[in-house]
């Protein structure tokens, strides 16, 4: 029954205290929220906690959501805010080697790919929080510039400058890997 309901109808019911309807919304949007939280922190366990906190806040503040169409952007904002709160409470960086560790021996190509993935991860996590948030929403979640601006409640110009700054930093951090990727793209 709830599977067929629109977000607007589920929000309406959840506002009246229907936890089942809210549960359906959680199932629908858990993955994007988790994805933002993971990319903000680089740690899967922290991402789970952050997603829980974000959905808890969403439940408490559901009444403040004016337009149901804005739900996804609103959840992104809650996820980004919860991630930033988490990062400020736990300033020590997540154990970067932990996520990439894989004791099994692998072929050279795969190892190189993993090394690149790890470098990307480190470079993203080294970005300033606000720039990271803009980059994640734009590049990973595929939001338009306008949607990023709405989700982060900042002007479009600020989104552009944060993205430009983030990309500049990533270019500097990933220089050799980018050259390699460019070459492999050309070869294709």
């Amino acid at each position: 029954m709830t599977n067929l309901m629109t977000d607007a109808a589920l929000i309406q019911r959840a506002r009246r205290g229907d936890q089942k309807a809210f549960g359906e919304l959680v199932l629908r949007y858990r993955r994007p929220v988790l994805s933002v939280a993971y990319r903000m922190t680089g740690d899967a366990a922290s991402a789970e906690d952050i997603a829980q906190a974000a959905f808890l806040q969403a439940w408490q503040q559901l009444g403040t959501l004016h337009e149901s169409a804005a739900l996804k952007g609103w959840l992104y904002r809650l996820a980004v805010n919860a991630s930033i709160d988490h990062l400020r409470r736990n300033p020590a960086p997540a154990d970067l080697s932990d996520e990439a560790a894989d004791p099994a021996p692998t072929p050279e190509g795969e190892a190189l790919e993993r090394e690149r993935a790890e470098a990307v991860r480190r470079a993203v996590l080294a970005l300033p929080e606000q720039c990271r948030a803009a980059l994640i929403l734009r590049e990973f979640e595929g939001l338009s510039y306008k949607e990023v601006a709405q989700a982060l409640a900042i002007p479009l110009g600020t989104v552009m400058s944060r993205l430009s700054y983030a990309r500049g930093l990533l270019r500097a951090a990933l220089g050799p890997y980018l050259a390699y990727t460019s070459r492999s793209l050309e070869e294709r």
Binding site: R31, Y38, A47, R116, V120, F140, L174
Partner: peptide, 11 residues
């Protein structure tokens, strides 16, 4: 290339 590299950072 940057966009492609970023796609390596997955959940």
């Amino acid at each position: 290339a940057l966009r492609r590299s970023l796609s390596l950072y997955t959940l």
